[in-house]
Write a protein that binds this DNA or RNA. Structure first.
Lengths: 206, 206
DNA sequence: AGAAGCTCGTACTTGGATGTACGAGTTAGG
DNA sequence: CCTAACTCGTACATCCAAGTACGAGCTTCT
């Protein structure tokens, strides 16, 4: 009953194939959720049958891709220093992992309909929690707004990150400018409104 | 060459069927982009063959749904008073038509892969332009930020609106609170950052 | 080197969705 | 009230992707 390592014996080349397949699945599915098994196999540079040898069904492949991306995400996220000013922490977090966040979100969306809903919720819980914790901390010290439901704040971060990834994918935005844009946008969403609008209101007409 | 009214003669019951089909297509496809022709027909309360009688292919049905939703959107949008303070105008716009914006966006996404990319861009141009104009106006009078690309600002509005619709769809948010949340969120994104953060910075450590 | 393990092409089955063909019954409208 | 238009079920032809079966040839590990 060893928790990981289900099969103690697996040849090195098989290990390699699996790695390439999972990696290709992540890349392909996050761009096109309805990608064919065949497309993924080609992207991985292996034959379709090899793929089926390791993942008996599409569902298992999708799950493996999601788990892998999430594991990666966890690792990256936990390497980020989230202490200090919540705004700075958020900037660091987005800067170093918006691309991973976007991928995970896309993959989870791809899993919709393939994986049972409960499983998706479970898988998504980890990364979400990390973002949520940070937001809560920012709220507690007065940095972040408290006038909107926390669920909404967490999710809107995901939506915006996903949108940014779309912009890059569609070529409307250049990869290097994204991080800064994202940080600025999400800052604006989360930071407490300074004090209402009247401060700098100007009459609409003379 | 009469612009509209391609077929002068069409029976009243046919007209009724078409209306029900298009309406059902809008509702169904905006919830599930991959809905079956059969599902749509059932939702419309007509037989599948009746549907095919009016829309020879899936593509034509999708197109009709998109066009109808967009026409509706245009009508609603143009009824909104967009003069005066840009923030207020934006609030009015979102308040009266976020649901339509969300539907159009979802439908356009459903059309991805069914309709040629160019056609989608053309169809999307109208509504987008209206939002873009409003943002530009706000920028011109100093209400809205100018430190981020206008394309991003326009699109992020769409992403957030779409996200809000998702929240409602998933039951995480209640239909009546959405509009206010949306307005607050999008305000924060668009309004010019008051002057940077240093205003209320606090030292992270003594 | 030799057996077990892995790769991967070809070919087949199955399942779901699109679109076509036919035709009998129903409804609108002059 | 009679005809053209419309509805819609059954049945059929395709197509596409998923998954299965088989087997020949190539690695890895001991």
């Amino acid at each position: 009953m060893s928790p990981a390592a289900a099969r103690p014996r697996r040849r090195a080349d098989a290990e390699r194939s699996i790695a390439r397949i999972v990696s290709a699945a992540r890349a392909t599915l996050s761009g096109n959720p309805e990608a064919t098994i065949d497309e993924i196999a080609k992207a991985a540079g292996v034959g379709r049958m090899t793929l089926y040898g390791h993942f008996p069904s599409r569902a298992e492949l999708v799950e493996a891709a999601v788990v892998d991306a999430l594991r990666d995400g966890e690792a990256t996220l936990s390497a980020v220093d989230l202490t200090g000013d919540a705004r700075d922490a958020l900037a660091r977090l987005l800067d170093s992992s918006w691309t991973l966040l976007a991928e995970s979100t896309a993959l989870l969306a791809a899993a919709e309909g393939t994986l049972p809903a409960g499983r998706i919720r479970d898988l998504h819980a980890g990364p979400s929690a990390r973002v949520e914790d940070l937001i809560r901390r920012g709220q507690a010290d007065g940095t972040f707004r408290t006038d909107l439901p926390i669920t909404w704040l967490v999710n809107v971060v995901h939506y915006v990150v996903h949108g940014a990834a779309d912009e890059v994918h569609a070529g409307r935005m250049n990869g290097s400018e994204v991080a800064a844009t994202l940080v600025a946008t999400i800052h604006s969403i989360l930071v407490a409104p300074s004090s209402g609008r009247s401060r700098q209101r100007r009459p609409s007409n003379p």
